[in-house]
Amino acid sequence: MDVERIKFERTGGFAGMTIARDLKPDDLSEEQVHKLSELLDDLEFENLPEQMTGSESMPDEFTYTITVETRRGEHTVVTGDASAPEKMQELLQFLNRLARKKKNP
């Protein structure tokens, strides 16, 4: 997948703190871009349903809103810790780590 930008937002959690990050390939290492593309391709991200949450959030779980922009357009998926399918967990971990590392610029 030829990613131009990823918008990542994490809300809720026990602490109720929101993290929102714009991730662009130019800001990431070659290895990170490769890994991200691989994870998104494996998931067939653009074909995932927009809502991958349960009927209601579980108490204190994180809710993730992930928007992937490519030349063909953009696709957004909303999911949560307890409702995200197993195959999506690696992507969540990867994005979490990138987003948290940016807390201290």
Binding site: A15, M58, E61, Q93, R97, K103, N104
Partner: peptide, 30 residues
């Protein structure tokens, strides 16, 4: 998980992360 700065109740059990254990010490918040 790794670097999971949260705890939650999943409807059946409690789940706890280790905070920012995967970040360099001077970047850890939780």
């Amino acid at each position: 998980r790794r670097g999971y700065d949260n705890a939650f109740w999943d409807g059946e059990q409690m789940v706890y992360g280790d905070g920012d254990e995967d970040l360099p010490e001077d970047e850890r918040l939780f």
